[in-house]
């Protein structure tokens, strides 16, 4: 729900820190690891979770997230399966707000209105659709609004300032700021990202979360000083890939704990 997302950003920011947004691909490395991974990320200190919806043609993603997509597609993970994973994670006690992130076509195939309604019913809080800019998102945004789930727009380094007002106006929880030109997991977040955040800030009072090129503890801390949220994706996929399947939840939990600098439990269990 949009209000749950806003509350979680407000809570983290009220504690004098940026919200930590952690991404994982549904069905990667194996479908039955996804729910434990979601709970593990929360236990490690994630405030908000992005659950990737697999797609065969993830054209804005770099090699790491592409591999995760390929594995999940090969395992047959559909949008409906993603919703089942969200339901199960909620049943097992996940409290962090969760945003579904992916591409437009699987949502279209499922049906936009049904996707928004079923996502809300499953306990998801919003959508980030990489290839659905606000200009093309009219019907889907309406479906999201009717179901109380958030449509999270993206702003990029190339977004003209004249456009920032239009883009941020469609947001009702937070803004996803793409830090760098390129794909996910590519170039490191640049030093000037603070300028981009400041420019966006002139157009919105909502929290701004920065993603793309953020992986190390130093980068997380640096971005956290200029934005209300820090998004990490490829580094989590890399942590999953960094050893046995059985050990992936523990590796991800300890990675999140390391980069957030928070001990287990500090961010969990609070609504």
């Amino acid at each position: 729900m949009s209000d749950r997302l806003r509350a979680r950003f407000a809570q983290a920011n009220g504690e004098g820190r940026a919200a930590f947004v952690a991404y994982v691909m549904a069905g990667f490395p194996e479908p039955d690891q996804t729910v434990p991974l979601l709970l593990g990320m929360e236990a490690g200190g994630a405030d908000v979770i992005e659950l990737g919806v697999p797609f065969t043609d993830p054209l804005a993603d770099g090699a790491t997230v592409q591999r995760a997509n390929e594995v999940a597609v090969a395992a047959g993970v559909t949008f409906a399966d993603c919703l089942a994973m969200v339901r199960e994670a909620r049943a097992q006690g996940l409290t962090a707000p969760l945003v579904l992130m992916g591409y437009d076509n699987p949502l279209l195939a499922y049906g936009e209105a049904r996707a928004a309604a079923d996502a809300a019913a499953a306990g998801a809080d919003g959508f980030i659709v990489v290839d659905l800019p606000p200009d093309e998102a009219g019907t889907f945004r309406q479906a999201c609004a009717e179901n109380g789930v958030s449509f999270v727009p993206l702003v990029a380094p190339t977004t003209a300032e004249e456009r920032m007002g239009e883009v941020t106006a469609v947001a009702d929880s937070f803004i996803y700021c793409v830090s760098v030109m390129g794909t996910t997991g590519g170039a490191a977040v640049p030093a000037e990202v603070g300028d981009l955040v400041a420019t966006i800030r002139r157009h919105t009072e909502l929290p701004i979360a920065v993603g793309f090129g953020v992986s190390t503890q130093e980068q997380v801390a640096r971005v956290g000083r200029v934005a209300e949220g820090v998004i990490v994706g490829s580094a989590i996929i890399a942590a999953i890939e960094g050893g046995s399947v059985e050990g992936c939840v523990e590796r991800v939990r300890s990675y999140v704990e390391l980069v957030t600098g928070r001990s287990a439990g500090a961010g969990a269990g609070e609504a």
């Binding site: 804005a60 800019p133 093309e136 727009p153 993206l154 990029a156 977004t159 003209a160 793409v178 030109m181």
Partner: peptide, 14 residues
């Protein structure tokens, strides 16, 4: 038709 693209490419298409 339309323009279903990542935000980073919007300016270039315009």
């Amino acid at each position: 038709g339309g323009r279903y693209i990542p935000e980073v490419l919007v300016a270039a298409h315009e």
